[in-house]
Simulated scan of single mutants.
Amino acid sequence: MTPDISGPRARLLILGLATAVLAAVAVVATVRAADRAGERDRARPGEPVARAGVVTLRQQGRLLFRNLAWGPQRDHISSLPLTTMAGPRTAAPRNCLRFHAAAGTGICLRATGGVVPGHEAVLLDARLRPVRTFPVPGMPTRARVSPSGRLVAWTVFVSGDSYAGGAFSTRTAIYDTRTGTLRSDLESFTVVKDGQRHRAADHNFWGVTFAAGDNRFYATLATGGRTYLVEGDLARRTLRTLRENVECPSLSPDGTRVAFKKRVPGAFADAPWRLHILDLRTGRETALAERRSVDDQALWLNGHTLLYALPGDFGADLWSIPADGGGAPRMIVKSGTSPAVIA
């Protein structure tokens, strides 16, 4: 005999069973989500330990960086002593995708929540508290603070420029913390190439590095399928090309040398860069002993050593290399990126 499923009682029974099944599915999903969240909050074997604590830009002799060790402090700005960059790291409740700091000023590029996710640049004080926030039009890629702490620069990848085609496009801004002036796009500066003003729709800039004096800076210009080291003058709003095939420059503490990544012949298309040093006075280039491709804006740890990030087990690790072309690469911070030296 076929059961009657058309009556009110049968329909209520079916509804009850369906509700129970859905409730069970929801419970299982919640438990699994909690397990995944718990997994994110637990350090994994071989990872450094990050502990919540106080981090400021006034603690001298420290290396600050974005912590990538798994756990509740992942992506938080963390601190280690320069003398022993091992052991537990202290993490501040400030999460960033890109970070840099100098002389009591910090810059944090981070994602924003909401219905439409985005990104923003957050100016930080010496206690890593937000001072001012700027919306940015794309994915963060580079950030720098001038040695005095007065000037702050950031670069983001953007999409939608008609001239860019399949290549990337960038926006680079510089903010003056003293005057409150925001130069929102270096593309508004006058470019001088080979002694002549150079106009092109495909100008892209990234990787600002500041000289002492808070007027002169260096950056990368991409145009016509080539890259150039440019020297910038904030007061005159000009950019002068100095050398071809230079990306992500980083000025040495004494202002005489630039570390940069250079495309080298014979390298793989997706890993084409090698770290070099350019002597600004003589024009002499020195290839560094790091043979792997480095897609990062290196940072001077001191006058003779560079820091840079390479892919690692949990995102990226920080490595060091002598700036004279000798020595060998050495990992100094596991699960970290975006360093800043607080000397």
Rank of each mutant, 00 (worst) to 15 (best):
R236Y: 02
H304C: 08
L301P: 00
W154N: 02
N245Q: 04
Y228F: 12
A103F: 00
I321N: 07
D125W: 01
G207D: 03
T256L: 05
R183F: 06
A222K: 14
P117E: 11
T305P: 01
R257F: 01
R9V: 15
M331I: 10
A316L: 02
R32P: 12
L288S: 04
G106T: 11
T19E: 00
R66Y: 00
I14C: 06
T177Q: 07
F268R: 12
D313F: 01
E290P: 04
A92V: 07
V246D: 13
P117T: 13
D41K: 00
T56W: 02
F260T: 08
T170C: 07
P147E: 08
G149R: 10
V28I: 12
G118T: 07
T155G: 15
E47S: 10
E290Q: 07
M139E: 10
P253L: 01
T241A: 11
E285Q: 04
A271K: 05
L123D: 00
F268P: 15
I107L: 05
N215H: 08
A29H: 11
H304R: 13
A271Q: 09
F314L: 13
D279Q: 06
F168S: 15
P45Y: 08
E47C: 03
R32C: 13
I342Y: 02
M331R: 15
D270W: 03
A212M: 05
P45H: 05
D233P: 06
D317R: 06
F217P: 07
A340R: 00
T209D: 14
